[in-house]
Design a protein around this nucleic acid. Structure first.
Lengths: 97, 97
DNA sequence: ACCTCATATCGAAAATACTTGATATGATCT
DNA sequence: AGATCATATCAAGTATTTTCGATATGAGGT
């Protein structure tokens, strides 16, 4: 069972690892296939798969299956949710809108 | 030596741990002394100190010494920098402003 | 100078996260 | 059906992070 804190932490785990930041940088060019990512990054295929799972669970990345391939892209909704959450977490309770 | 990715990750480490999210929640009520935080949270004094260091290094929290006491508060500049960075990391390169 | 209080740092143990080769799954092709 | 390719999952090792008691530092108070 996840606490509210664990759920919030999950969102930002996407940005807390060097490899995942590298992956996000590549995805800023647009949707990419896992095979492209594993080729462009210096990591084992199973390692990429591990990081992609974390990125998808954070909501920051969306995946799409197409036959043998899995395509990944940055999620607009997930990203704007993260921005909203980050603002909430750092806004004083007394502050009026 | 920190890579650019490590520097970016440092910012979001603030939000990746349950205890730090609890601390931030308390700080949303305004500036608080370390002794207040350690009293309100269920953790050893050395553990709080460890997390406060990470929060300060992320730029999200500012500290202020006052005699024996250390006061912590959420940093407006640090927070808005984090929001800006988060937006950058999730914005497609092709997207126009 | 000595004592106490608040906080930071150290060191070692415990808990988590990351990495990778091996294996499983599931799609496509012959 | 059998072979191959892309990806996911597993299991075990390695690395990093978190925790906490003990100790150090440094500000006040007596």
């Amino acid at each position: 069972m996840d606490t509210i804190y664990e759920k919030q932490a999950k969102v930002f785990k996407a940005f807390c690892d060097e490899k995942r930041l590298q992956i996000l940088e590549l995805l800023r060019d647009g949707e990419k296939c896992a095979c492209t990512l594993v080729y462009e990054l210096d990591m084992a295929q199973s390692t990429l798969s591990y990081h992609m799972k974390i990125l998808c669970e954070s909501g920051i990345v969306d995946s799409r299956k197409d036959g043998k391939w899995t395509h990944y892209k940055i999620s607009k909704e997930g990203s704007s949710f993260a921005v909203k959450l980050l603002k909430t977490l750092t806004t004083l309770n007394t502050a009026k809108e």
